[in-house]
Write a protein that binds this DNA or RNA. Structure first.
Lengths: 257, 257
DNA sequence: CGCAATATTGACCATCATCAATTGGCGTGG
DNA sequence: CCACGCCAATTGATGATGGTCAATATTGCG
C-alpha cells in the first residue's frame, strides 16, 4: 500500500494490475463465484492519479461513475461554511468511497487523498449492468454499504461519548485491524499516512490536543508513531485504554488471498 | 403518530392496518410498482407493542427477522461498558431500524422506544424471497440504507465539529423536515417524544447543558419546546444558527399520500 | 543547505461536564 | 378531588477537558 509505481498524474484507460484489489476487498466480506470475479476484473475503468491535497470528487458533484481506490490512501470529509472540517472515514485500496452515488444523485461529501493515490472510475452504467447480471454482487455491494454504516456508527460513539485518549487509542485499534485484514500490518506495524491535524479532524479534536494525547500514549509505551508509521507495543493494554470491541468491523477473519 | 389504539403488550400475528407505513416510506424515496406495493402489504409480520424503556432488539442479538416501526417512535443506541450512552438515530413509522441484520449476523447496537410503540417483525426469509422476486425492492432497500448512512455522516459532523447551539438547532431542523416529509408537522409544529437527557445522548452533551441551550433558543424566540411539542418560530434564523443544509436528507420533496 | 510542513511545548481561556438542589407537571391511589 | 411521588426540567456553583494562540523544534525534501 505504501508504495506504487505510477503517480505521474497521467490518465490511463485500461486494465491496471491493481484492479484485483476490488475482488480482494469484496472477497473479504463475502464469497464470490468465478464468474463474479471475472466480471469484476472485466469492468471498464478509467485510472487517474492524485497527490496529497487533491480531491477525487467533491461535495455537490453529480457523478456518473464510482471511484475505486487502487493504491494509496483516501478519506471522505465535509467542510462547514467557516472551514471547520470533519473527516468521515479512511479508505484503503479496494474501497469504493462513493458507492452511494449509484443511488443518490448529488454527493453530500468530498473524497480526498492523503498521499499519492491511484483511483479507477467505473461508469454507473457498467455497475448497473454488472449487478443486474450478477445479483450476488448486488448483495455484496449492499453488504459493503452496511459495514460502512456500522463503522460510521462506531465513530459516532467515539465523537459523542469517548474522551480524547479513548478516541485516539480506538482509532489506532481500528486501523490496525483493518490493515491486518488486508495483510498490511506485519509485526503489528503499519503505515498511516495522516498528520496529527488529520487525526484531529477525524476525531473532533484540535491538532494540539491530539499531539498531547499521542505523547501520553507513547510515554505509556502503548504505541510508537513516527514517520507515518505506527507500531502497537502493548495490544491488550491499548484495547483496554480504548474500550475497543472489534465486532463492529464485521471482519470475516480470513486472510486475503 | 402520537397516539395509537393498542399498547397492551399483546402479540398479534396478522395484518395490522399500519402496515401501509412501509409502502409509504419506501415510496417517499423511490417509485414502486403496483406489484411491489402489494407484495409489501402481503409480507408476513408479527406485531408486538412496547412501552417507553423497552428494547425491540439488543446489541449482540442474532436476529432472524427485521423490525418495522408501525406506530410510535424508536431509536438506535449503543452503551459503553461504564454506562455512557450514544443515541445513533431516531425512527418514525415506516422505518426499518435493523435492516442491516439481513446481511450482518450479529447486531452491533440496540433499538429502543421512547413512547408506546407498535412494531412488526418480518422474517429474514420473507425479506429475501421478496427481494428475489422484486429486484426493484432490493434497490429500494439499498437506497434506504444509503440515506441512513448519509444521515449518520451529518450527525458525525455535528458531534465532531459543531458547538452545542449548532447541534441542537440542527437536530430540530432535521426533525422538522423529516416529520414534514411524512405530513406530521403542520404549522411547523411537531411532536418529539424525547427528554432533554435523550437529546443529550444523541448529541454528545450533558442533559444540563442541553437545558441551558434550549433556554437560549427559546429566549431568542427561535423555537418553542414544551410538552414534547416543538414549534419553529423563525425557520430562517434557526437554520442559520444551525448551519443547516437540507441536502443530506435526500428527500424527494413529495408529500406522502 | 534551506524551505515548508509537522510536531511539540507553554500559557491562558472557554465550553461544557459534574454535582447538587429546587421546581414543576402529571398520573395514581386514597 | 387532593396529596403523594416520580420523572423531567431548571438553576447555581465549581471544575476539568480540551481549545486557541503563539513560539520553537523537527523532519522531510528539493
Amino acid at each position: 500500500m505504501q508504495q506504487h509505481t505510477n503517480h505521474l498524474g497521467l490518465s490511463h484507460t485500461d486494465r491496471p494490475p491493481e484492479r484485483h484489489r476490488l475482488v480482494q476487498k469484496l472477497q473479504s466480506i463475502t464469497d464470490l463465484t468465478a464468474g463474479e470475479r471475472q466480471a469484476l476484473l472485466d469492468l471498464p475503468m478509467a485510472v487517474r492519479s492524485y497527490t496529497k491535497g487533491e480531491d477525487l470528487v467533491r461535495e455537490g458533484d453529480v457523478p456518473s461513475e464510482c471511484c475505486l481506490i487502487l493504491d494509496g490512501f483516501a478519506f471522505r470529509y465535509k467542510l462547514l461554511p467557516d472551514g471547520r472540517r470533519q473527516i468521515l472515514s479512511f479508505h484503503t485500496p479496494g474501497d469504493l468511497p462513493d458507492l452511494q452515488s449509484l443511488h443518490i444523485q448529488t454527493l453530500d461529501h468530498s473524497v480526498g487523498v492523503m498521499m499519492p493515490t491511484m483511483a479507477a472510475f467505473i461508469p454507473h452504467k457498467s455497475m448497473r449492468d454488472l449487478t443486474e447480471r450478477f445479483p450476488g454482487l448486488l448483495h455484496a455491494f449492499w453488504r459493503d454499504t452496511l459495514i460502512d454504516a456500522a463503522i460510521f456508527r462506531e465513530w459516532m460513539i467515539g465523537l459523542g461519548r469517548r474522551d480524547a485518549h479513548e478516541r485516539i487509542a480506538h482509532l489506532i485499534c481500528e486501523m490496525l485491524l483493518r490493515f491486518r485484514g488486508v495483510g498490511l500490518a506485519p509485526d503489528d506495524t503499519f503505515k498511516m499516512p495522516v498528520t496529527q491535524a488529520d487525526v484531529a479532524d477525524a476525531l473532533g479534536l484540535s491538532n494540539v490536543h491530539v499531539n498531547r494525547v499521542l505523547m501520553d500514549l507513547r510515554r505509556e509505551r502503548l504505541i510508537t508513531w513516527s514517520n507515518l508509521t505506527i507500531t502497537i507495543l502493548r495490544w491488550e493494554e491499548l484495547q483496554k485504554r480504548a474500550l475497543f470491541e472489534a465486532n463492529y468491523l464485521h471482519q470475516v477473519s480470513k486472510v486475503a488471498a
